[in-house]
Amino acid sequence: MSAQGGTAMQERVTIRLAKQNMKFSAGHFTIFSASERERLHGHNFTVEVDIEARMLGNGMCFDYGLYKDRVVALCRELNEWTILPTRSPYLRIEEDGDHVYAHFDGQRIPFLRGDVLLLPIENATLEEFAGWFLQRLCEDREALRAHAIDAIEVRVLSGPGQSAGRRVRLG
């Protein structure tokens, strides 16, 4: 196929990864301001990934099983934790032996260390979880180039009808 001017067009494809095992269960609370937050609660989150890539021949773009496995592994990292953000301007984290304390608006909220996952995010929100997955999926830039990947979008859902997505264009 050729475009105007005789130069060859390279076909692009979008692969959607939305497997049943791309999920995690976690406790969290969203921080709205310096004095307002949700109560601690949990969700069964699901993760979907769209990968835009160039066709590489042989009727395919790349072995996207590699990315399915990576998303499942990342979900396992978050599964069955209470997630606390370490970059919030309104939350201070204190670690003391077997305990973690979240300091918020004059409150000292205790957690068992073994129940808490401290994530380098600003808030425990769908938007930030999507960004965390996206950042982790984009760590191996060499592999992304080798697979001719142009863009990745990650969407995290906390239930039917409620999700947030983050997208990055590569190259």
Rank of each mutant, 00 (worst) to 15 (best):
L134I: 07
A124T: 11
G65S: 09
F111Y: 06
F133H: 00
F133R: 03
D69W: 05
R87H: 12
F111M: 04
A151G: 12
Y67I: 07
A73R: 14
P110E: 06
R155P: 01
D98F: 11
L119M: 07
L126M: 10
V156W: 05
A124E: 01
G65M: 03
D69V: 06
H99D: 13
D105R: 14
F62M: 03
A143M: 11
R155N: 08
R145K: 13
Q135F: 12
R155Y: 03
T125W: 09
D69P: 13
T86S: 15
N123L: 01
P89I: 00
G59P: 11
R54V: 12
L112P: 12
E128S: 05
H103M: 09
I109C: 04
P110T: 02
A124I: 03
G106E: 08
C138E: 08
C75H: 06
L157C: 14
Y67D: 01
R108T: 12
G65I: 02
Q135R: 15
A102D: 08
R87E: 12
R141T: 13
A146M: 04
V72P: 10
L56P: 14
V100F: 00
F104S: 01
I109A: 06
E122F: 06
A130I: 09
D115R: 11
M60I: 12
E128Q: 11
I93M: 07
A124V: 06
S158P: 08
R136S: 03
G131M: 09
L144A: 02
E122I: 10
L117P: 09
A130R: 07
I93P: 00
T125V: 07
I152W: 02
Q107K: 11
F133L: 05
M60W: 04
Y101R: 06
D98N: 15
F104E: 05
L74Q: 02
P85L: 03
G106V: 05
R54I: 14
I152H: 07
N58G: 14
S158N: 14
W132E: 02
M55L: 13
I109G: 04
L134H: 03
F62Q: 00
G57D: 01
E77Y: 11
R113V: 10
H99W: 13
E80W: 12
D115K: 09
E139F: 05
R92Q: 15
R54F: 12
L78R: 00
D98R: 15
I152F: 09
L119Q: 04
R145L: 08
I121K: 02
V72M: 04
L78Y: 04
L144Q: 04
G131F: 02
L117A: 08
T125F: 04
H99A: 14
G131R: 02
L56V: 14
C138L: 10
C75N: 07
V116H: 01
I93R: 01
P120A: 06
I152S: 02
E127N: 10
D115V: 08
N123G: 03
P85K: 00
E94M: 13
D150S: 15
V72A: 05
C138N: 10
Q135G: 09
N58R: 15
R113C: 08
